[in-house]
């Protein structure tokens, strides 16, 4: 491992940070998934118990949490597709940095669209 801050292709650069981001978002999504299956399982126990738990997803603080979760999901999804291109497309390793900037660009656009719609629904009504 290089101890200087220059001279490596990977360490501290786009490749490493996208790998860190992929791991962190992956763990966050997995932990939510465990909770989400458990809360959905309440539909098999008692309809009003399910509705009571789902009501917690509708408060504004949770709406912000959901927005952050979807931000993680969108990054993991688009960066995952980039990983597939890096592995299977002949030019993938050559353009992995440009692909990451593409991922970030698409992520910004899609996330903005989601956040505007979700937050206006969550804060807007009822």
């Amino acid at each position: 491992m290089s101890k200087t801050s220059s001279g490596t292709l990977y360490r501290g650069r786009e490749g490493m940070w996208s790998w860190v981001g992929h791991r962190v978002t992956g763990v966050v999504i997995f932990l939510f998934l465990l909770v989400h299956v458990l809360d959905t399982a309440l539909v098999r126990v008692d309809a009003s118990a399910y509705d009571a738990v789902i009501a917690t997803y509708k408060n504004p603080l949770m709406a912000l949490g959901e927005t952050a979760l979807v931000a993680a999901i969108l990054f993991h999804a688009f960066n995952g597709l980039r990983l597939i291109l890096v592995d299977f497309w002949k030019q993938g390793t050559k353009y992995q940095r440009q692909l990451l900037w593409g991922v970030i660009g698409v992520w910004v656009v899609v996330f903005a669209g989601f956040a505007i719609r979700h937050l206006s629904l969550a804060f807007g009504g009822h």
């Binding site: 309809a47 509705d51 709406a63 999804a77 597709l81 989601f114 629904l121």
Partner: peptide, 27 residues
């Protein structure tokens, strides 16, 4: 991963982005 992108995007669109969104979720 490829299949999950499709399945999760469909899940999010159907449950959070159409109709009343999160406020429409119930038994």
């Amino acid at each position: 991963g490829v299949v999950l992108v499709i399945l999760i995007f469909g899940h999010l669109i159907a449950n959070l982005l159409t109709g009343e969104g999160v406020n429409g979720l119930s038994f």
